[in-house]
Design a binder for these strands. Structure first.
Lengths: 180, 180
DNA sequence: CTGAATTTTCAGTAATTTGTGAAAATTGTA
DNA sequence: TACAATTTTCACAAATTACTGAAAATTCAG
């Protein structure tokens, strides 16, 4: 499959960024071409578009599946599998946040909890535990938030993000509201 | 410098996680030992605590400085430089979010803007541009948010995060509030 | 200004991560 | 069930990234 110059340059950029996100270059490129192309693509098309080996595509797709980032399609009379990204960009963002939290926060949260269970052996450990507690509480709050986010509709999420600087004002008047 | 068993295991964990965050193993370990130790540390102490070369520590400190994650101290009568982390965990979190945004979103935002300026050469490019527009708008909102966050006090940030599921309710009544 | 203490740089090496082709496994249709 | 199409796995190779020691640069007390 040939890709346009515009897509090509975007794909290259997403490749470079891929490693800064939890992915890697190929994964970034693969997801870029999938997201930016309207029709679902099969593995051979991706392999050709990005000039990477068929097996690399297979491994990349496996990983994108584990991130819940792609949808699987079947075309009647064609045995190949076709892949596309959700058409709702908010759904993609939501998935990314949740999956990154799983990979980046959950394991640490568990380690921090373990450390808090231990008996401090001296006063240096006591300081350490205090910091661990602070980190733990913060990360737990972030986790609650991402869970909240997961259940939010795209419309609501978009409305929330659009608040922008308004959020500060809302916090100021929040106590005046009858919540809970 | 010797570190306790508790710190040791936390340092190892943060090392493993380091690569999942935008850092790397050594950087994760270095920051862990700095955050978890009350007294500011000098480069030799870090080098000894983590069993890594002095030059590696120097490069790591350089990077932590570029992330604005460490504070520099001087001890009277000692020519060495000592480093510590902010005592306020929210300040660390705020810095992390802002710095990651700089590295993970800003370059992409600029590339997306470039792509939007181009003339679509066919209808496939038109679809691509539509998706680019969606991504661009979303990322711009996130940028606004992190800017907002940067200016927020730790107390306010903590209050916002504590809202947790309350945020949904607030959104529901937001229109009833006289904002702006 | 001098020189010892300290920090930084950098070229080379080590370690890790990523990509490939060939072979194995799976799938679905005739 | 048989077999061709397709996908996945995996050992090895290639590429990238991280680490080190030695040397250069910087800092500052005397």
């Amino acid at each position: 499959m040939k890709i346009t110059a515009m897509t090509q340059s975007l794909v290259l950029h997403f490749g470079e960024m891929g490693s800064r996100w939890g992915l890697n270059r190929t994964l970034g490129q693969m997801y870029a071409v999938i997201v930016l192309t309207e029709a679902p693509l099969n593995a051979d098309q991706i392999s050709e578009a990005l000039q990477i080996s068929r097996s690399n595509v297979s491994m990349g797709l496996k990983e994108l599946k584990s991130w819940n980032l792609i949808k699987l399609h079947h075309i009647p009379g064609d045995r190949k599998e076709y892949f596309s990204a959700p058409s709702d960009i908010w759904e993609i963002a939501r998935t990314l946040v949740v999956e990154r939290r799983k990979r980046e926060l959950d394991p640490t949260l568990s380690t921090l909890r373990d450390a808090l269970m231990e008996q401090p052996s001296n006063e240096s450990d006591e300081y350490t535990q205090m910091r661990v507690k602070q980190m733990h509480d913060l990360m737990e709050m972030v986790t609650l938030w991402t869970n909240e986010m997961q259940g939010m509709s795209s419309e609501k999420l978009s409305a929330l993000l659009k608040l922008g600087e308004g959020i500060s004002k809302i916090l100021d008047v929040k106590d005046k509201l009858l919540l809970r």
